[in-house]
Amino acid sequence: MSLLELRGLSVRFDTPAGSVRAASDVSLVLEEHDTLAIVGETGCGKSVIANAILRLLPENASVTGSVIYRGMDLLKMSEREISRIRGREIAIVFQNPSAALNPVHRILDQVSEPLLIHLGIPKRRAVHEAEGLLRALGLNGAGRLYPFQLSGGMNQRAMIACSSILRPKILMADEPTKGLDQSMVKNALELIESVRSESGASLIMITHDLDVALSSSDRIAVMYCGEIVEMGRTEDVLCNPDHPYTKALRESMPDRGFRPIPGNTPSMIDPPEGCRFHPRCPFKMKICSRERPSLNNSCGRYVRCWRCI
């Protein structure tokens, strides 16, 4: 049995402008100690997946499919049951730590909170344990301070401490490097990796940055317009992409010539017929605009493209 398995997960948001199909038919598997990166441009639905797993989406979202964690379908749980999974079994680190931490509580109280609500241990012991973790993460003395008194990088450390203090089985990081400069990116990734390996968790790294994916994950899923278009071992996929979108994405990276992908990101309300990438695809065939390709598996490599069948 896999640790986590998504089966045909679809997410739709009902908005005044129409219904937005943020994720369509997403299936993937995460094993223990696995590290998986989900990459794609902003708005492709990768963060939606992470929030859908923990059922953190707003009320106007409707989610179908199933999210199986250790044999239990998270989507069928009651709110009370899923709240016991959140933070304890599956934890998440958001991309904007200074806004995700509560402005009027001290860091120490926030980091120790999961111990109080999940384990019910006495406040003093919880605070003591949180102090130890903060010290280990290089936040000596920051516990008595408030988020507004710390830098963004320190707040991120505090949030990572808070999300990992219960040694969850799965740690999800939603764009942890967005807005950080190059040296900070390295620090953040090292911190996440050390926390992950120390607690033996699996990692889901959500990022738009292929370098981040490469250095932090064994496997990768590339998303375009709410769909997984390519999935496999990270090195294989990034060094030798099969899907035209993965190729284009790689070439749009700064170290690879910064060539932007031609055309516009499609509307998520009314996505293109057939293959969703076909309006921008240089290798487009007739069938591409008519029929939607499925995600085909060949030797552990999944590709959603008519040319790769």
Partner: peptide
Amino acid sequence: RSLYALYARAKGLYDSQILFRHLFRNAIL
């Protein structure tokens, strides 16, 4: 609708725990 409320939920706080442990003090300010 704030992010810290969402994060409180992600930490495993249940329903009105989020309101009373996290939102109330911010909302009353």
